[in-house]
Design a protein around this nucleic acid. Structure first.
Length: 162
DNA sequence: GCCAACGTTGGC
DNA sequence: GCCAACGTTGGC
C-alpha cells in the first residue's frame, strides 16, 4: 500500500530517528492505517519535544545505525503525546520501573506515514549543507532522537531532491 | 566491530 | 551536589 498523498506543508517541524532494524519506514507502511505509536523514547529532552508536538505537525523520518543513515520520508503527527505504556511492561525492552500509570515518565505520539522518498537523503549530504550546520543531527555523534527542525532547515532539506 | 560522545546512576 | 563509573548511541 502506498502512502496517502498529501500536500507537503512548507514547514516540516520535527525529525524522528529510528533504527530500521527496530522500526523502519517500510514497517510503518505495512501497519494498519500506516499509523503507529512512536514509542521507546527514553531521553528527557527527546520526550519534551514529543510533548511539544501538535496534531497536524509533520516530521522527517530518519534511519540511524544502518548502512546509509539519512532521511527516508515524512510522517504526520495524528495523536498528541500520551503515556508510553511500554515503560510499564516488564517484558518490553523499553521497561522502566520508575514510570507508572499513576505517574507516567515517558510519552509517545502517533505518527501516520505521508511519504516514502524515492531515495534516502543521506546524512553525508545533509552535513554538506551549510544551512543545516545548526541542526543537532549533523553534530558529531548526536544522540538526540527527536528534534525540532526550523522552517528554513526543512526547506533546505526538501530542496535536496534530485 | 570500534570507540567517542554523552546521558544517567549512585556513592560519598 | 559532585563527579567517576557505566551504559548506550550511532557514525564510520
Amino acid at each position: 500500500m502506498k502512502p496517502i498523498s498529501h500536500q507537503v506543508p512548507n514547514h516540516i517541524q520535527w525529525l524522528l530517528k529510528s533504527e530500521p532494524s527496530t522500526f523502519s519506514i517500510q514497517a510503518l507502511s505495512n501497519c494498519v492505517r500506516q499509523t503507529e505509536p512512536w514509542n521507546g523514547v527514553r531521553n528527557y529532552q527527546a520526550r519534551n519535544y514529543l510533548k511539544a508536538m501538535n496534531v497536524g505537525d509533520w516530521g522527517f523520518f530518519y534511519h540511524s545505525s544502518c548502512k546509509e543513515p539519512g532521511i527516508v520520508g515524512l510522517v504526520e503527527i495524528v495523536r498528541a503525546a500520551y503515556p508510553d505504556h511500554t515503560a510499564w511492561d516488564d517484558e518490553s525492552p523499553y521497561f522502566d520501573p520508575k514510570s507508572t500509570p499513576e505517574n507516567p515518565r515517558w510519552f509517545m505520539v502517533d505518527v501516520q506515514l505521508r511519504q516514502i522518498f524515492s531515495e534516502t537523503i543521506p546524512l553525508s549530504l545533509l552535513k554538506r549543507q551549510i544551512e543545516l550546520n545548526d541542526m543537532p543531527l549533523v553534530k558529531t555523534r548526536c544522540r538526540l532522537s527527536v528534534m525540532p527542525v526550523q522552517s528554513e532547515e526543512s526547506k533546505t532539506i526538501l530542496e535536496l531532491f534530485p
